[in-house]
Design a protein around this nucleic acid. Structure first.
Lengths: 149, 149
DNA sequence: GCATTAATATAGCAATTGCTATGTTAGGAC
DNA sequence: GTCCTAACATAGCAATTGCTATATTAATGC
């Protein structure tokens, strides 16, 4: 057997390895819910109302896709739909939105502090935010804080 | 209307906003393919062979799930299945694996350089790696390099 | 060389997240 | 008040990614 010039880092044990993938799959399932709740909160704050059409336009999906998703969020107790009055967040929804928004804000600020351009920071943070543990988020926060002094 | 104490950052234009979500959805579609190809490459390097059972064990999914996915990767020209001999990467598969593995390595090193613990760095990098643009990856690489001098 | 077993393949199902097409209805213009 | 329109709801479909149950087959031990 030929040996590699640069010795390869051996794989971790399967039982340890699998945890990363499980965690990542769990995060992926939560992503969409988090995106919706965060966006509804943003629209309510910024525009005073959150309509299906505006949500669809910003997410880049069709309106019935949004309708179906909101039904699920409503049955999960995160939003309340007032017909023809738009979407509102329950207390639970508000709490989730606030956590998600803060995390997103930190991740985006962190990328900017690292020197990433505005556009890449916006796009990358949208994907990264859902996969950041509390430990990493805290490190990001401290990094931004240090740069702002 | 009551005014917020801390003035809220206004939302970007919908046409700009939607780009982040579109990009993130595209990344999500590529994630699984990247995970498989990277893992197959790791197993080939580390163990000399990549069996469905080992892939399934490490990803935390059932063997038929892996079989179905490998069929797709084979039809995409990324892997070759030699029955009862395991999985092998095509040239295209190798090229993808090498890109993905390098990106993963940089992201994980970056988190470690930031002071994140081993376990969180392993788990977070598994989720983050798929959402890092070239620009951000380069910034991560430079950060690690600077710390290693 | 044959039986056993471990590896793989296949069938059939479910949940999720998207879509288009099309109904239904609340609110505002007149 | 009635009509129109924009907002929303619903039906039905497709792709993806997971599952369990079960069949098939290559390798290997004896």
């Amino acid at each position: 057997m030929a040996r590699k010039a640069k010795l390869p880092k051996p794989l971790v044990d399967p039982e340890i390895h699998v945890e990363s993938f499980r965690q990542t799959r769990n995060n992926r399932r939560a992503e969409i819910v988090e995106d919706y709740v965060e966006l509804v909160d943003d629209l309510l704050t910024d525009a005073g109302e959150a309509r299906q059409i505006d949500i669809a336009k910003r997410l880049g999906v069709a309106q019935p896709t949004v309708a179906k998703m909101l039904k699920r969020l409503a049955s999960d107790g995160l939003v309340v739909q007032r017909p023809y009055r738009g979407i509102f967040l329950t207390e639970e929804g508000k709490a989730l939105a606030s956590r998600v928004r803060e995390r997103h804000r930190i991740v985006e600020s962190f990328l900017r502090a690292l020197g990433i351009g505005e556009e890449s920071a916006r796009i990358d943070s949208e994907g990264i935010e859902h996969h950041v543990s509390d430990e990493t988020l805290e490190a990001f926060r401290k990094f931004v804080e240090a740069r702002n002094q």
